[in-house]
Amino acid sequence: MIEQQSQHPSSGSEANAAALDEARLRQQAIGVRLRQMFDEVVNEPVPDDFLEILRRADKSAEQG
């Protein structure tokens, strides 16, 4: 990739900087998506059985 850029020596460093910006942009975009994918599940309502299981465990702890 660096080889290709050197074909335009006059704009070489500019092209490099642009490529870096582009790469950063892409990584940011992936990061946003990744968080969104995770948060989608975080924002789902918690199924009742989770709290039910914990309630039962809590009760048996009180009795024991």
Binding site: V42, E44, F50, A57
Partner: peptide, 28 residues
């Protein structure tokens, strides 16, 4: 923390039902 445990489990198992089982086990 339950919602976060569910989300992490989902990324490990993929399958939502298996993930919730895993999250419940971890919670207990």
């Amino acid at each position: 923390l339950i919602p976060h445990l569910r989300a992490f489990a989902r990324t490990l198992c993929g399958d939502a039902t298996a993930a919730d089982d895993l999250a419940q086990d971890a919670m207990m």
